[in-house]
Design a protein around this nucleic acid. Structure first.
Lengths: 337, 337
DNA sequence: CTGTTAGCGCTTTCAC
DNA sequence: GTGAAAGCGCTAACAG
């Protein structure tokens, strides 16, 4: 008689006329007599049996669950990253537990603990709050874009320096001889901080006098930008810069709106270049909001997952991996000369 | 001596000098002698103990994990929905397992099974593929926007009919006397199909001759839209409609782009109204892409979670819950008269 | 109110 | 190559 509950290994064993251990071996691909294997496989099929992950996890301390911590999913960049992480995990037989930290440190810490209690096999963290003290040692953890001092945490990121450098050169090549850099950032250090450094380095090489806005944890970004812009007008109201390299697409978009409101034509009067490569309505069909140094989101996500899984199985993994970013036209820069 | 492994209930019991059962009771908030409770709580704190969800789950068949199935997270509407579902679940002590189905039925079915194997406590499904045959009976499942025949699945959705109706009336009030409706949809029936019905109903009431584009599983939306638009020009190249009510913001945005490319001014010549209420760069600061009938995403997410949890605990829940949508100005309609 | 104990479904020795 | 049996950490009777 078929059991009414969801079938367990016991049911399979009974139906196949073998012992529990044999069924377990078949499932875990451990050598077993041909005949028995076939019998067990048949029973599994007939019963629609699937292993109970939690019973298995209890035993093996594996759950096939990976936690992803992101600030939120409404930011299109994080949304894309989340999607690709999920996809890659799925391909490797893992499920994704999603934590939108929303800047709540306790929430991040709670999820970090989840892993340390081995309820989750690892963590991919994209966090901008300060939780480094709560990082469980010896737990598979990879960080995106954020460098954790004092902890042996592999970091994956875009090559932000190169992006800042190449972007500045690109603006120059497109005719911007007075590009300014603009950024708002949190007080927690991240790899993305290197974007400005890249800009500075390129400026030096090009013989441009660098000029930038750098605000930490600003509240009213719009007002600050307006002040910055007005401080860059000469006596007849002309702008003293002809290009804006923004730290993120969002910030660049904001700059664009403000400039347009003031009758400045983009890209004729001022070219704007962002960073991230965010697309309207997702990747598939959407155009960029603005021209941008695009991060290879999919590859970044894959690399995070693969690094994490390798680390879990004990392979030595790079402490730092940087992926290149590339320029993409999005309407706010001049077409190629 | 402190154990080197992550502490178990046994360690807590030993340290507190009580039995396992007592510790379990303290944890599960079952009455226990004041003195013992304090001792146990102290031991828990000192050891940094946390229950092992999987051991517990094995026993109780509860995992405090809920699966959310969405088509993807790059669509801003789904992204927002995901975020709010996660937040609400968190408030209730549940974790989110995220499945981006990407239109792959096998993937959805796999996750559906996860739940039926009681590795997950329930499912919130926002799916546009046909998986109704795979729906495990008697498993807590609530559906967003999609009506499952033959299954006792509570459905949550926006009041799409009301939205279609109110949106049409709004366009009329703003001076559109010849609004057309435009939609692309999948072949799977969903609540969102009622948007067109609302439009038709309002047209009848207003004495407007309805006119609409309705495409199923179209490949080249842009081309179809262009054809539609060109078919609506009189002999001197003037449009025969003065308003477009699009089935989604994305579709409305596409219409806007095409019209603008043809030199048509929005909203002066043609007003455009979308549906969803998607915002650039997420909810916080972003403006709408276009004027829209906005779905109350947060409330929808909350309702899904609460309905699911109620159903789990055996409470009778509504088979259908509709939440009202509301008009939001987004630049593609005329300002209030 | 407290301690003891029998499993939950699975993996993994360990004899056979 | 196979089966029996001992747990993984926890909960839920059940005695006391």
């Amino acid at each position: 008689m078929t059991p009414s509950h969801t079938p367990t290994m016991k049911d399979v064993a009974a139906r196949a006329g073998v012992s529990l251990g044999t069924v377990s071996k078949v499932i875990n691909h451990i050598t077993v007599g041909e005949k028995n294997r076939v019998k067990v496989e048949k029973a599994i099929r007939e019963l629609g049996y699937e292993v109970n992950t939690y019973a298995r996890g209890l035993k093996t301390q594996e759950t096939k669950l990976i936690t992803l911590i992101v600030p939120d999913t409404m930011n299109p960049f994080f949304a894309a990253f989340t999607q690709y992480v999920e996809r890659t995990l799925y391909e490797h037989g893992y499920k994704l537990i999603l934590c939108c930290a929303n800047g709540i440190p306790e929430k991040e810490i709670g999820y970090l603990n989840l892993a340390s209690q081995s309820k989750t096999d690892g963590i991919i963290a994209l966090t901008y709050t300060d939780v480094s003290s709560a990082i469980p040692s010896r737990i598979p953890l990879v960080s995106f874009d954020r460098y954790f001092e004092d902890h042996d945490v592999p970091m994956i990121a875009s090559d932000n320096f190169q992006g800042g450098y190449a972007g500045t050169k690109k603006l120059w090549a497109l005719g911007c001889h007075h590009p300014v850099f603009v950024r708002f950032r949190s007080k927690f250090p991240s790899e993305a901080d290197k974007r400005l450094e890249g800009y500075l380095s390129a400026c030096q090489e090009l013989g441009i006098k660098p000029d930038y806005l750098d605000q930490i944890d600003a509240i009213d970004e719009k007002k600050i930008l307006i002040d910055f812009i007005e401080a860059h007008m000469d006596f007849r109201g002309n702008l003293t810069f002809d290009g804006v390299f923004a730290n993120t697409d969002r910030q660049g978009y904001l700059v664009m709106k403000i400039l347009k409101e003031r009758g400045i034509r983009i890209p004729e009067n001022v070219q704007i270049l962002g960073f991230d490569g965010i697309r309207k309505y997702g990747i598939d069909e959407g155009a960029l909001f603005i021209s941008s140094m695009c991060q290879p989101v999919e590859e970044l996500a894959r690399l995070c997952v693969e690094t994490l899984l390798k680390k879990r199985q004990g392979t030595v993994v790079p402490t730092l991996s940087l992926l290149p970013v590339s320029y993409c036209y999005g309407g706010t820069t001049l077409r190629e000369p």
